[in-house]
């Protein structure tokens, strides 16, 4: 119970900062929209794109905007060093990680709220036809991405080359998650009926990756972030 309270307190702290500044979510959503426009310029010819392109574009944009959000959300930890204060607080270290992760998930969800309709509109994809399956895929994919991302962004807080390294560390590790997300979304976009068998398989793989990544992150958060 104490663990849950600590987690919620940290998430609430992150959300309060975000409510006051609104910089992370606004920047993420705006950046996502810009990248989408770039894709539209590059890939839409006479109102048509390659049949599977929308799924890939959606996940690429989520990954790019997510990285931007992670960078900014954890850069705050450098100003006045609140992370060090948090680490001194009498709470479980994993609670800090989970709290940060939940806040990041909320930021990602808000960005996706903007991104998904835009992808559906710009690339003429039937993304909104099966909202429950799409939400499940997005949620699972975001958990995998944010779990790995929060861990490494947290570990990079004190590193001079952090903006350079975040992408290099993060993308190879979340490639399987993104791949599973893309494949699942492609199965969802199959016309006239989504390929539920393939969708189910990739959803399970996402669950597997999520469990593995969150467990591993909880294990290594302490030695990785509490360094020195």
């Amino acid at each position: 119970m104490k663990f849950v309270r600590s987690v919620l307190a940290i998430t609430a702290k992150e959300l309060r900062i975000e409510l006051r500044t609104r910089e992370v979510v606004v920047a993420m959503a705006f950046f996502a929209a810009l990248v989408l426009l770039l894709f539209a310029f590059a890939l839409v010819h006479e109102g048509r794109t390659a049949p599977d392109a929308a799924a890939g574009i959606l996940w690429i944009v989520i990954a790019l905007a997510g990285t931007l959000g992670l960078s900014r959300a954890f850069d705050r930890e450098r100003e006045g060093n609140p992370l060090a204060a948090l680490l001194l607080a009498p709470i479980d270290r994993p609670a800090i990680y989970v709290g940060k992760l939940l806040a990041m998930l909320i930021f990602l969800a808000l960005t996706e709220l903007v991104t998904v309709p835009l992808v559906a509109l710009l690339f003429d994809a039937p993304l909104l036809a099966h909202p429950i399956q799409l939400i499940a895929l997005l949620a699972l994919g975001s958990i995998g991405f944010a779990a790995t991302g929060s861990l490494f962004a947290g570990a990079l807080v004190r590193n001079r080359a952090r903006h350079l390294l975040l992408g290099i560390l993060l993308y190879p590790l979340v490639l399987p998650v993104l791949m599973a997300g893309v494949r699942g979304t492609q199965a969802l976009l199959v016309l006239p009926e989504p390929d539920l068998l393939v969708l189910g398989t990739w959803t399970r793989i996402l669950v597997l990756f999520d469990v593995a990544m969150v467990t591993l992150s909880l294990w290594v958060f302490e030695p990785l972030v509490v360094a020195e």
Binding site: R204, I205, L208, V211, A212
Partner: peptide
């Protein structure tokens, strides 16, 4: 974790 890994594998 192991149980989940196994069950997912079998389901797949």
């Amino acid at each position: 974790l192991l149980c989940l890994l196994l069950s997912t594998g079998l389901a797949l």
